[in-house]
Amino acid sequence: MNDNVEKRRSERTVDDVFAQAMAEPDIRGRSLWVDAWHRLLRNRAAVVSGVLMILIVLAVVVGPMIAPWAGDFTDWDNTSSPPSLETGHWFGTDAVGRDILVRTLEGGRISLLVGLVATLVSLVIGVSYGAVAGYYGGMTDRIMMRVVDIIYALPFMFFVILLMVVFGRHIILIFVAIGAVNWLDMARIVRGQTLSLKNTEFIEAARACGVDHHSIILRHIVPNLLGVVIVYVTLTIPQVILVESFLSFIGLGVQEPMSSWGALVNNGAQDMESAPWTLVFPAVFLTVTLYCFNYIGDGMRDALDPKDRA
């Protein structure tokens, strides 16, 4: 294919080529993403997961707004009632008559929100840490990465629990605690990528133009890390959601009246003998969400990872 382009090019005048180049800027840059997008669309599991995910997000965002009940409304005529269309409680109610459907959707808001925000926290820390270590290299890099190695060997979950015990169970703290402990992988991946980027010609060109280190990292290195980072973010979100549900399940996560899928599964597990639907519905939502994120992440990695392209 390259040969063809070369041949056609040689038949045209320089002006032609120049005019065409001006008309189609960035054609190579775009094609990488278009390529990846097509590869992703061919991955049936990832596409199905993507559609399901969009449906879940829509339901979680819109559902509670149009539902006839609020999540904390207690329907005393229908306590622990099984799922039925007649009562209007499609997923049934819990022991104090709260609608499981609405509570599941509202819990989903918290779970997804924690997933996004905590991932964002870990993204910001991980990318800046990794990019700085990779870019400056040498002694700085060695010390920074040694620190990562040391923290990496620590029992992550226990530190999150320790943080929750010491500072109380506030939702903001959940974001920060999970994000602050979860940036290590991101830092490692970004550092590796930066190392290979920093010796490329365009970075050299930027340096030759007198761009300072700060701008090179921010304007030239970080945008080129996008592919790897996107893949990693998709794989981090389900991990974070899982950590939050774990905390909520053992009673250290979000507190009543707020709830998340983990907290709902915990409530459901206590009533499962008499009212199994209180367990099953939040559990299904949580599992399907994690399943979808994992498949989308896998698909993205296959689509974007240069290693697997051969």
């Binding site: 774990f246 983990g262 599964v265 459901g268 499962m272 559990a283 599992t287 994992n294």
Partner: peptide, 9 residues
């Protein structure tokens, strides 16, 4: 994907 606190109950 299934957390063990879902599997167990």
């Amino acid at each position: 994907s299934i957390p063990n606190f879902v599997v167990a109950p």
